[in-house]
């Protein structure tokens, strides 16, 4: 039951994009087309879950015993960059079709602050390994959900008569604000 609560919390209540403002750069950058945001979202779910569990082991068995907690940011960013490279190579060899679909989005993920954010939040919250994996995957799913919602809105905005000065970033932020307002409704759910 606890795991379900963590999942719901990460996807809806504390949505990484809408409530915690993480991963906004790709969020605004990629969300102009539905197909590309789906690809980006899947890649993020994958990398988030992988790096969430990898950093848990690193923190528990290397950083804490050696009392090197203050190095966690630097270690985690390296782990994420390495993982992204590794994932890219594995997918390229084993699933060329998937690689073609995700291709350009994979390298972008290493600079996605949502991925680093999820690992840091995991450690702060003191999750167990399984809770950690559930929370990381939930974070990725929440990111994907928000990305897909915004991209479909923006596809329609392409043809809408928007005042000149609002085109581009401002209207994207206004739409994001409205979506975020909708997500605020989930905060009534009895999960933390």
């Amino acid at each position: 039951m606890n795991y379900i609560l963590i999942l719901i919390s990460a996807v809806l209540v504390n949505n990484f994009v809408m409530a915690r403002f993480l991963g906004l750069c790709p969020f605004i950058g990629v969300s102009t087309k539905y197909s590309s945001s789906l690809g980006m979202g899947l890649a993020v779910i994958f990398v988030m879950t992988m790096s969430g569990s990898a950093t848990w082991f690193l923190d528990r068995f290397i950083l804490i015993p050696l009392n090197l907690g203050f190095l966690k940011t630097i270690v985690f960013i390296l782990v994420i960059a390495t993982l992204v490279q590794l994932v890219e190579m594995i997918i390229k060899k084993s699933a060329p079709l998937l690689y073609d679909a995700l291709g350009i989005y994979l390298p972008l993920i290493s600079t996605n602050c949502a991925v680093l954010g999820v690992t840091l939040i995991n450690i702060d919250a003191g999750y167990s390994l399984l809770e950690n994996i559930v929370h990381s995957a939930g974070g990725g799913i929440g990111f994907t959900l928000a990305l897909i919602i915004l991209s479909t809105i923006r596809e329609r905005l392409e043809y809408a008569p928007i005042p000149e000065c609002f085109k581009g970033a401002p209207i994207a932020f206004i739409s994001a604000g409205l979506v975020s307002l909708a997500f605020l409704g989930f905060s009534g759910l009895p999960v933390k």
Binding site: M18, C165, F166, A169, P170, A172, F173, I174, G177, L184
Partner: peptide, 25 residues
Amino acid sequence: MAPGAFFVLALFIWIVKSFFIREKL
């Protein structure tokens, strides 16, 4: 809360864009 941040930023960019950098649009 979160939505307020999005709205203020959007309005800010809009104001700046329309007053200071009109030639770039």
